[in-house]
Simulated scan of single mutants.
Amino acid sequence: MYLLHRIYNQTSAAMQIRLLEEENKLSIGYAAFVLAGEGDTLIGHARTMAKADFAVYFAALGHKMGLPWATRTRSHWLYYFLQLESNDTVVVPTHTGFAIYRVTGAPEVVPTVAREHDVGFTVPVKLLVNDPKGAVGAALTDAMRFRGTDLMLSGQATQDIDGLVAGQDTTVPEPAAAAVAAVQETLQGLHPAQFTEIVGRYLRAMGADEVRYPAADPNEDETPVDILGVFRNVGAVILVHAQQYSGTVPEAGIQELVGFQYTTFEGYDAMAVIKWFVTTGHFPEDEDEAVGYVQENRVQVFQDTDLAKRLVISGVDLNFAKA
Rank of each mutant, 00 (worst) to 15 (best):
E116M: 11
Q159A: 13
S246A: 13
F260V: 03
V103S: 03
D150H: 11
P124T: 04
Q16M: 15
D306R: 05
A138N: 12
F81G: 04
P214E: 10
A236S: 14
I238M: 10
F146Q: 02
A143P: 00
A143K: 11
A205L: 10
T122F: 04
F58Y: 15
P173W: 07
V199T: 10
P284C: 01
W69R: 13
G207M: 06
T263Q: 14
V34W: 05
V34N: 05
Y268G: 01
K322E: 15
L318F: 10
R72C: 02
V90F: 06
R201N: 07
V240T: 05
V278K: 02
A166M: 12
T122S: 07
A135I: 00
H45W: 12
L35G: 04
G155T: 02
I254Y: 01
V90K: 03
E287F: 12
F98N: 03
V92T: 11
T96N: 12
K275E: 02
L20C: 08
Q188E: 14
E266G: 15
M15K: 15
A55M: 06
A323S: 11
H95G: 05
A46M: 06
F33E: 05
L82D: 04
G29K: 03
Y245G: 01
A106R: 13
V240I: 12
A176N: 14
E23P: 00
I313K: 10
E296C: 02
V110R: 12
T263W: 01
A14H: 12
T248D: 01
T149Y: 06
E256Q: 15
T96S: 14
M65C: 04
T41K: 13
Y262M: 09
L4I: 08
F231V: 07
R204N: 10
A46I: 06
T223L: 05
R6S: 08
F283C: 01
P250C: 02
V180S: 03
Y30P: 02
M15R: 15
K64L: 11
V136Y: 00
A216T: 12
G253N: 03
V109M: 06
E210P: 00
S12Q: 05
G134K: 10
T11G: 00
V301P: 01
V316G: 03
G281R: 02
L140M: 09
G44L: 07
A182I: 00
T96L: 13
P192Y: 06
T141W: 09
A308P: 08
V234Q: 12
T171Q: 13
Q243A: 09
R298I: 00
R102Y: 00
H241K: 12
A166S: 14
A216D: 13
V129A: 05
Q295E: 14
E22C: 07
G120M: 03
A14S: 13
P214L: 06
M152D: 00
E197D: 15
T11V: 13
T104D: 10
F231D: 06
V294M: 09
E197C: 03
I28L: 07
G155Q: 09
W77A: 14
Q243L: 11
G163N: 10
A176Q: 13
E185F: 04
A70M: 10
A178W: 02
E22L: 11
Q159M: 11
G267P: 09
R310Q: 14
R18F: 08
A99T: 10
L26Y: 05
P111Q: 07
L20G: 04
A182V: 03
H117C: 05
P175C: 07
G37A: 10
A50R: 15
G155V: 01
D162I: 03
